[in-house]
Simulated assay, not measured.
Amino acid sequence: MSISAPISGPPPARQAVPVAQRALAPDLARGFMLLLIAVAHAHMYLSGHPTGFRSYTLDGGVLDRLVAGVQILLVDGRALPMFAALFGYGLVQLANRQLASGRSWTQVRGVLRRRSLWLLAFGFCHALLLFFGDILGAYGLVGLIFIGFIRRSDRALMWAAGIGVVLHVVVVALLGVLTVTAGKSDTPAAMADPVEAAVMRIIGWSGMTPTYFLVSVVPALMLGFWAARRRMLEEPGAHRATLARIAGVGTAISVIGGVPLTLIDTQIWTPSYAISVPAYAVHSASGIAGGLGYAALVGLVVAGWEGGRRRPGAVVRGLVACGQWSLTCYLLQSVVFVAIFTPYLGGLGPRLGDAAASGIAVLTWLGTVVLAALLSRAGGRGPAETALRRLTYRRGG
């Protein structure tokens, strides 16, 4: 499917769509996704405990085990694919707007590549200063490598997604083998020397971005392209049946595929490595379906509101604002976690368990929702979004 004109027909616009005119569902999905990101990341700043496959502590109390179990089943490995699908969806939206303004594909590709390069740079800085598990670099990398797939046929997208799933399973299985054979060392979050921690974050990021994160992102990215061609989240009412199937099947696959590792990492079940490593791979692969299912669920919710002519309340408007500021809010989460957990600042990493870390994550996310809601009232964008846009278009356009 060659794209010399917009895929679907958004309003012609050379510049970004004004905040007030943005579709509700994509931003609402991003706002909700940031909650999942927060609780999936916070426990990774803990230290001084033995951990399982998903880095939850194995020596926590009952509440810690309960929280870890819920998150392994419903959050871990599900937030990242949801993020990737929404990222892919947004790339197609951006390409459509540029093409509708009269630009050629060559010009549009240049814009998308510059944006991807700057995302890679943002990811490098994020990893250097804050978080070894940065995902922005992977999005920048896939944008550079796979941007041409925006013009490819649906069949090509499905093949790429399928191959991506296979590669994902292989890479995750290898990581699982390393986990049980080589064991785990403390993450950079446990290091008392901030310079040493920064060096180790960059080393880890440089290895994980082109391997684990890259193959983790590709399948959902391709399916995000596919969904954006059909404007599924911009016009959810017209795709109710498809969204319901994706939500139902995706969530079911995610939950069923997540059960074995949930039992293993909460020490309810202690099978041999021959079972636990495949369980780890199945958990991760099924999470791709879960991330897509969650995004579809948000689309269904919005379709219901539109059908009933219901106006979003203050809570929904706050979530939407957070989604519009998703890059800023994502980075703010890391700032808060570093300030609270690392030994050279707050120092709470060795003292807290999974439940407390997740509680801090929820409060942090709520804080970003409130902040975005208050500061976006004038219709402005977040500082990180503004910086990325200015850097992308600084050569005209």
Rank of each mutant, 00 (worst) to 15 (best):
L112I: 08
H43A: 00
A244I: 00
G250A: 11
V62Y: 03
I264R: 08
G293Y: 14
L371P: 01
T270N: 15
P210F: 02
A29K: 00
R115Q: 15
A85P: 08
A189T: 12
F131K: 02
Q267D: 12
H41E: 13
A252W: 01
L74Q: 08
P271Y: 14
T386N: 14
A281Y: 06
L58T: 01
S376N: 06
L374F: 13
P383D: 13
L261F: 13
G48E: 05
P81S: 14
A220G: 04
V169P: 05
F122I: 14
Y56T: 01
A127R: 07
G61M: 06
V298C: 12
A339M: 11
I268W: 15
T328H: 06
G257C: 15
M200I: 01
P12D: 08
T106K: 09
R309F: 06
L332S: 06
A321G: 05
S104Y: 03
L214S: 04
G349T: 07
R152G: 08
Y344N: 13
A79W: 10
D354N: 15
G359N: 01
P10I: 00
P236S: 05
A5G: 06
V316R: 09
A314K: 04
E306A: 13
A247W: 05
L292C: 04
D76T: 15
S326G: 04
Y89H: 07
E385F: 12
I145C: 14
A121G: 15
